[in-house]
Nucleic acid binder design. Sequence first.
DNA 1: TATTGTTATACTCTATAACTATA
DNA 2: TATAGTTATAGAGTATAACAATA
Lengths: 170, 170
Amino acid sequence: MTENAGPAGLSPAELGAYFALIEVSSLVRHAVEQQLRDAGDLSYVQFQLLATLGDAPGGSRRMTGLADGVVYSRSGLTYQVSLLERAGYVTRTTAAEDERGVTVTLTEAGRGVLAAVFPGHVAVLRELLFDALDDEDIDSLSRVLTKARERMRSIPPRSARSRRRNAGPA
Amino acid sequence: MTENAGPAGLSPAELGAYFALIEVSSLVRHAVEQQLRDAGDLSYVQFQLLATLGDAPGGSRRMTGLADGVVYSRSGLTYQVSLLERAGYVTRTTAAEDERGVTVTLTEAGRGVLAAVFPGHVAVLRELLFDALDDEDIDSLSRVLTKARERMRSIPPRSARSRRRNAGPA
DNA sequence: TATTGTTATACTCTATAACTATA
DNA sequence: TATAGTTATAGAGTATAACAATA
């Protein structure tokens, strides 16, 4: 018997990390969602999609690539992208290389909202999260969470399985 | 001009920490939500409420105290607690000290679901999060996030303001 | 008058399954 | 046959505002 809580439970340190992770991320997300709603009438998912496109070369991505870590079902992605298209923030075109695919591209208006929303976004993060942390805190937070993220990405995500479940053998 | 990104933006370290925080917490939450659904037909919020009660003396809490860090509107809390009551996991009684208040109490059945759901819950956290981290990682994660949480709790939460907004001066 | 909690309602988001079209 | 994406639909969750009751 170790001090480390066997397979049955979590150690106190793990429990503490878990609860803090959930509470902090909830509060951050909730606060940021309000700000995005107020400043640009964007949901958080929509913001993430726009930001992902903003970082992509040419402001373009295929639907599939856009989903990573943001949305957990195909229909959900279609839904959100439809809203963005209706708002004029992205365009959808048939992919050049694969006629089945759809390329989503950020428009000028899309870059506009991003720019409009960004300062307030940053302000919320500063006030709520980063003002409480020194450089070292931020570094270790980033380091540990990045490590965790890489692990998670390497594990078969449920969304990848979901298709296969339908089209099972037989 | 510092290397530290002025008020206009976030430093690369901050950006990295922020994105990793959002992605990791989303993935964790999503995975855990599925597990809770499968194992006990509980939403994550319901699980949090039960767990909060499980930690409380006598398994009881006032509605207001139950909301902290879990739910962001009173009606949302009422809704979730109603579901829990209907399922037989909690009871609601008029508070002894304040006739306006409601005391929510965990039932035996409530403790039962918690127990039933817990091992799988822990397993998901291990596989997804903790297996990737060593003890030191977990300690710093816990330390930094706890620091952040304390800061956030000390800031006037929007939910506290919301009431006042309605009943503004004349 | 302020606070606790509930209710009614409207809305957003998500997920499953069925479907189309291309590879 | 497998993959990319869309659509229809149904359900869960959330928030706002109006409300009742107690302090």
